[in-house]
């Protein structure tokens, strides 16, 4: 039996008829064709599917589309505003915070909430703050740097150097 749901995705309202078992990540990817949200595991472990649901970062592989009825979603496609990269998007690019790019959308959305709650996190708080997002390529050093850079940008402070400390 299909359920009608109304969801705002990246500012645009959609009314959809969905199977109750439809996972939110499949609604985003398969129904709305927003393929920037990825799937990397079956066990809510990897965080590649992280999106914002009413501003909270959640793993969309473990939420039903019907649970998002009446709510607002932000996916990676909705992060840049008016063609302007968000501080985190800029931070990831400037600090080489990504290699293959597969975990990147989830990382950016998770870090978006992290910085919204605490714009000046310590390195330890950042590492624990992204503990639900696996990255297999970068070794995390530069992801931490990217988030620190974005934090500085949000706080309006001088931006840290993006040159690699590789002497």
């Amino acid at each position: 039996m299909l359920k009608e749901i109304t969801i705002t995705v990246n500012g645009q309202q959609h009314t959809l008829e969905v199977e109750p078992r439809l996972l939110l990540v499949h609604m985003i990817r398969e129904v709305l064709n927003l393929t920037g949200t990825h799937i990397g595991c079956d066990t809510s472990s990897c965080g590649a599917c992280t999106i914002l649901l009413d501003g909270k970062s959640i793993k969309s592989c473990t939420v039903l589309a019907v649970q998002a009825n009446g709510k607002s979603i932000t996916t990676i496609e909705g992060v840049a505003q008016d063609n302007q990269l968000s501080p985190l998007q800029e931070g990831f690019k400037e600090n080489h915070g990504l290699h293959c790019g597969f975990c990147t959308p989830g990382m950016i959305l998770r870090a978006t909430e992290l910085l919204a709650q605490n714009p000046n996190p310590t390195e330890d708080e950042i590492r624990w703050g992204i503990a639900g997002n696996l990255c297999r390529c970068t070794g995390y050093n530069n992801i931490v740097k990217a988030i620190q850079y974005a934090g500085a940008k949000i706080r309006g402070e001088e931006l840290p150097s993006t040159e690699p400390e590789f002497v």
Partner: peptide, 9 residues
């Protein structure tokens, strides 16, 4: 990077 950080990979 431009495409990966904007979900366009």
């Amino acid at each position: 990077d431009a495409r990966f950080i904007q979900g366009k990979g």
